[in-house]
């Protein structure tokens, strides 16, 4: 599969702070790539570099076959970018906002009208075309923002935390839209700190923390490689770190404990036995499904939301 993006040894510094430190990853054409990491990890910086908004200090970045350093203008015409902030004119209707953005992308006349109709349908807001933006919910505004980024038919769509602060209906709509775009062969880069979103949407991911890529590649392979089997147990009488046979690393989560183990059934048996012996009231006892949260936890020792 062709590479839509190829980043090698990317470094970006802000004064003394290194925002991106020797970052390398590639994105296959037509895939949905998830950039996962906590707030301040460097995701937005990476996105802004990819769209040519900011410069990088060293390394090489290839976007859709163009060198970012020397062919930035070519890249910008092929990329749609949805920033974290809503960028719309509140006093204009959705249609007029899109018309304005379309004109700035050089689309005119009938073609523009058709494109506006198409993108409104894509984001499911055709019925609200003539409503003023200031009457929209946060989620609807976000969908119009995405529509604006799709007007010029980009080959690469970059979404920076598109689901922050939006309603579940809009979130589901955005998910559906991303899946449809992927089917049409558009490469999507999706940054978030919600691991469920990445698991649900993306084929490939890079986990980024403190400006460094700590895991990257096919989602399933990362889960196989880094995720560990674990059991979650919650009991009011279990205030100290519990120690069981077969148990590995134990970490606090919510009001209970996540016990990594090489033998799930053995550990569950062990917990049950000890709880009965000590007459403990166990509120929750469950097998933790391997997911990106546990991958992140095992790689960094902290939760994604910490």
């Amino acid at each position: 599969m062709n590479k839509a993006i190829d980043i090698k040894n990317l470094v970006k510094r802000y004064d003394s702070k290194t925002a991106l430190d020797d970052v390398s990853f590639s994105v296959s054409s037509g895939s949905c790539f998830g950039l996962l990491g906590p707030n301040g990890a460097g995701k937005s910086t990476a996105m802004k570099i990819l769209t040519g908004i900011i410069e990088y200090d060293s390394g090489s970045v290839d976007v859709l076959g163009f060198d970012l350093k020397s062919q930035k203008d070519d890249i910008r015409t092929l990329v749609g970018y949805v920033p974290q902030e809503i960028t719309l004119y509140e006093k204009l209707s959705a249609y007029n906002n899109l018309r304005f953005f379309g004109e700035l992308y050089g689309i005119k006349g009938r073609e523009l009208k058709k494109r506006i109709d198409d993108v409104l349908e894509q984001v499911g807001l055709t019925d609200h075309a003539n409503s003023l933006i200031n009457t929209f919910s946060g989620g609807m505004k976000r969908r119009i923002n995405i529509a604006a980024a799709l007007l010029h038919k980009p080959r690469l769509l970059i979404l920076d935390e598109p689901t922050v602060g939006i309603d579940p209906q809009s979130r589901n709509h955005i998910f559906g839209m991303i899946r449809a775009l992927k089917k049409d062969g558009i490469t999507v880069i999706y940054s978030t700190h919600y691991m469920e979103e990445v698991e649900s949407l993306c084929d490939e991911i890079a986990i980024i923390d403190h400006g460094r890529v700590i895991a990257k590649g096919d989602l399933n392979k990362i889960l196989d490689k880094h995720a560990v089997n674990a059991v979650y147990v919650e009991s009011e009488q279990m205030s100290k770190i519990p120690v069981f046979e077969y148990s590995g690393k134990v970490s606090k989560k919510d009001r209970g404990w996540v016990i990594e183990t090489s033998n799930i059934l053995g550990t569950i048996q062990d917990i049950t036995k000890k709880a009965m012996e000590l007459n403990m009231a166990v509120k929750e006892l469950e097998i933790v499904r391997p997911n990106l949260e546990t991958v992140f936890l095992s790689l960094t020792g902290t939760s994604l939301r910490d």
Partner: peptide, 13 residues
């Protein structure tokens, strides 16, 4: 106005 990202991403020099 938080429009700088959009402004700088426009396909113009």
């Amino acid at each position: 106005g938080n429009t700088v990202g959009w402004w700088l991403q426009l396909p113009y020099s």
